[in-house]
Write a protein that binds this DNA or RNA. Sequence first.
RNA 1: GGGCCUGUAGCUCAAUGGUCAGAGCAGAGCGCUCAUAACGCUUUGGUUGCAGGUUCGAGUCCUGCCGGGCCUACCA
Length: 571
Amino acid sequence: MARILITSAIPYINGIKHLGNLVGSQLPADLYARYHRARGHEVMFLCATDEHGTPAELAAKKAGKPVAEYCAEMHGVQAELARGFRLSFDHFGRSSSQQNHRLTQHFAGRLDAAGLIREVSEKQVYSNADGRFLPDRYIEGTCPNCGYDKARGDQCENCTKQLDPTDLINPRSAISGSTDLEVRETKHLYLRQSALRADLTRWIDSKTDWPILTTSIARKWLNDGDGLQDRGITRDLDWGIPVKRGTEDWPGMEGKVFYVWFDAPIEYIAAAAEWAEAQGKPDAAWQRWWRTDKGADDVRYVQFMGKDNVPFHTLSFPATIMGSGEPWKLVDYIKSFNYLNYDGGQFSTSQGRGVFMDQALSILPSDYWRWWLLSHAPESADSEFTWENFQASVNKDLADVLGNFVSRITKFCRSKFGETVPAGGAYGPREEAVTDALRVRVAAYTAHMDAIEIRKAAAELRAIWVLGNEYLQDAAPWSLFKTDPDAAAAVTRFALNLIGIYAGLSQPFIPDAAAEMADAMGVDLAWPEDVDAAVAQLPPGAAFRVPDVLFAKIDDDSRADWQARFGGTRG
RNA sequence: GGGCCUGUAGCUCAAUGGUCAGAGCAGAGCGCUCAUAACGCUUUGGUUGCAGGUUCGAGUCCUGCCGGGCCUACCA
């Protein structure tokens, strides 16, 4: 039995995430976690909300709430939606937890002791009206290059020229619109990533099995321009983890907090500590997942994220871990994703364009979304959600191929033999041939899941479902029943056994339907490690239940309605 | 500007440099009647973006061009 640590990129606290966010990290991570649990491995699947930073403060202000209260509420909302999508986190933590405070301060102290922190005095724009320093992109003004009057301090969206806030003509706060801005001197801590460049390069070079998307982004950052740049890890904000060296104050850094991208990945570790506390377990219980000197040396650690997160996970966070000089577990494999677009454009949180997690669950059960999103995961390139494709895929794959198979055989049995597994007859060459095909396909499916080739795994699973329909068509128990009821009984028994097998195999993709299938057949939701045994699992004479329609089809009217509803402004 | 990814059937996608470039969907035909008008079988459909090159052999490797996308370090 292997031990597998799985983390999904942690979603930002600021609002409800859309389906593109979901398929880029949490959902595939859940697929992988469920798969490995089903195979009998020990899994620790962690996620959390990322709660610090300027956007959280502003969102709280807009909501008229203290930021701590706002984050607590939004964490609750996101946790509920995660449950709705059946995301099987062992713990869904918060980057604002006390555990993360302690660990983040601990790492900063270790890095400083190792000489990997330097203090930098720099000039930042301060808004008197807002009473805060403004990140570059929160300053607006007229672009000196093209004259666009809503250029941001980091870049002009109109002419794409990269800017410095001081370049802007008539700069103003993007928050309040105030022009009462001044440049102030402020001191910040920088992580000396450049000092770890050789170590990081060697480490990345050793990861020959990683997706090209992951390693190419890492290499670009390692080699771009003068090479890997040092990175500021503190900010002038109220809400965040106070800058400390371990438990000691950091003279000169009073009132400052760590930058969210410094503390967010550390939350992966802290989430395990939160889990232990919630479970009433000692520290050793989580440390055996994270400390190679305390049992984590046999752990395989896999991270899931969208491509925008890759630099932080391939460079900054590893630099933090390596630089600490302590035996923390480094990631073994990073699965990164491209973006999911929405019907010809991007999902847009600000414009409310696309489908958001709460809306998705309000119109269809999570299995529909899980199946479509995972079977179309943007693994090799950006992919696109369209309602036509969603309707066609879901109706065909889930309703026709899988759902109808379950329906046709259970109802056939009920009408001819009653709601018990018929005992007559025996399996013959036909059943043996299907069992052989099943064994081959299950092996292929397993290989794809092990390799985290999600679309290929989905295609293989679908092909496994198709085997059932092919078998029934070929065996035709409805004809056989007229001449040889015992033979028809054997066919029916074999086909009923397929339902239990399908439940086990489908569980990572569509957990609710899988549970319903297993329950209807009166079997445990189990992975068919031994296919030959699995096709004879149901005891003759055992009762079963004809399940309700597993997947109702999406009709054209609904599709057209949703298409109109989600095209623009949310509300 | 620089870098990376990508372009294969009407659509969504496969193909360690090696048989005739394959699946699913959509289309066409046939079959079946257990089933959610579902299922099965057969089948149409390709100058692999374009032009060169390397090779016994190129969708795959190289060069150039065209199109799409992403990243570019203070949003997270």
